[in-house]
Design a protein around this nucleic acid. Structure first.
Lengths: 222, 222
DNA sequence: CAAGGTATTTTGATAGCTCAAAATGAGTTT
DNA sequence: AAACTCATTTTGAGCTATCAAAATACCTTG
């Protein structure tokens, strides 16, 4: 069994690979994600490479092997299903479940996982709209537009929020921008780095481009 | 935060104290329960004593301090509530939940614990009939008779099964002796080390005294 | 091309938990 | 009392995961 440390390295590597050029993740990026110093990552990555879980290109970066990816997807599946359970069944605040799932994902057996999945009706996304890897290790790679990239006018449905911090999620919730909400971009001011959005029944709301970029959307009523 | 190793030491110490003469648990007993060598226990217990979680009487044994007991009860509460959840909500086999709970008990926050408790309707016992410590750390100390100690004839209700092994629990289940069942002791043969029991609608069943001693009962319709 | 800057790797240590095996203590047994 | 037995403790070592800080490699800039 992979220790929870190993599981965390692989999970963060998987997350970092999405959108990393060439799939090679720099050691520093991984160190940052795991909140450890770079030297520690070098040491651990070499051990993971010995176990065939990652491929290490010295001084360039690291990437998952097929086997490492398999393990990482299973951990991510646990994480997202646990989050879904905590929100749907235990009625917890979606801003709090990330930290809880961070612990539970390493303690859940595949057996319990599958029963949880069945209880929840085999959901495809978690409360943040993040896709849940299937038991077979398939991860939806749908690409979405963001509130920062959309033209003004058209109605949009929020489908995903790609940031786990409590503060940001509370803000999104309070602004009525959680997944499922319908909004319209009313104004984009790239120079000022601002976009303004409006819910059908609400006052306009200004967002930084950075914040808006974390809110993924799809055309509404498609 | 106590590491899961520390939590395990304290939990097993709590379990071992029940029924230990003078409340002092010999180092060897703890070593056996934790499946580590005695030297390891000596080392760890000294560290726990430094942290004020246990009291170590060298060459005699160890016992929980008030603080250690508080932590241990919280872990035991998590363990038993998780077991209850796994059986009641996820419909898992009661013979399998012990090992699962062994992992999950260390990953569950107090917050999640309380919501789980509420979801389950604040149960007082787990699926094996073991009492669940309250959030305030109160543990029911009810003493029960066992199938090995009861006189023949009177109707008895199984209230608790004090053994976690898969094999034993499967046997108990298959024999219809799970908590809630009603039985009668029909014969006791101390010389042969056997008791025979009978369910209202069933054939007689022979049990060793050892096995019968693990099945706790109360007078039926009392 | 030499000089700098930055990411990465190496080195030396440490904390937590464990084992094997030798040493010790304490209570019998003879 | 001397010898024996058994639990406990001590000693020396190893593994995993971490850090701080020095060394190294690579890329860019002057």
């Amino acid at each position: 069994m992979a220790s929870s440390t190993v599981e965390n390295y692989l999970k963060h590597l998987l997350l970092a690979e999405e959108g990393a050029a060439g799939g090679l993740v720099p050691m520093g990026a991984l160190a940052g994600a795991l909140a450890v110093v770079p030297g520690t990552v070098t040491t651990m990555v070499k051990a993971l490479a010995d176990d065939g879980l990652v491929e290490h290109r010295p001084r360039h970066g690291v990437r998952l092997t097929a086997e490492g990816r398999r393990v990482a997807l299973n951990v991510l599946r646990k994480h997202r299903l646990v989050e879904t359970f905590l929100v749907k069944v235990l009625k917890m605040d979606w801003a709090e479940v990330h930290v809880e799932a961070e612990q539970l994902e390493h303690a859940l057996s595949d057996n319990v996982l599958d029963r949880l999945d069945a209880l929840l009706g085999r959901p495809e996304t978690d409360p943040h709209g993040d896709p849940i890897p299937s038991a077979q290790g398939r991860l939806s790679a749908e690409v979405h537009a963001t509130l920062a990239s959309c033209a003004t006018g058209r109605p949009l449905r929020v489908v995903r929020v790609t940031e786990q911090s409590k503060e940001f999620l509370h803000f999104v919730d309070a602004s009525g921008l959680a997944p499922g909400a319908t909004v319209r971009v009313t104004e984009r001011n790239l120079a000022a780095g601002l976009v303004t959005v409006k819910k059908s029944a609400g006052r306009p709301l200004a967002l930084s481009l950075t914040a808006a970029g974390k809110i993924l959307v799809a055309p509404a009523r498609g």
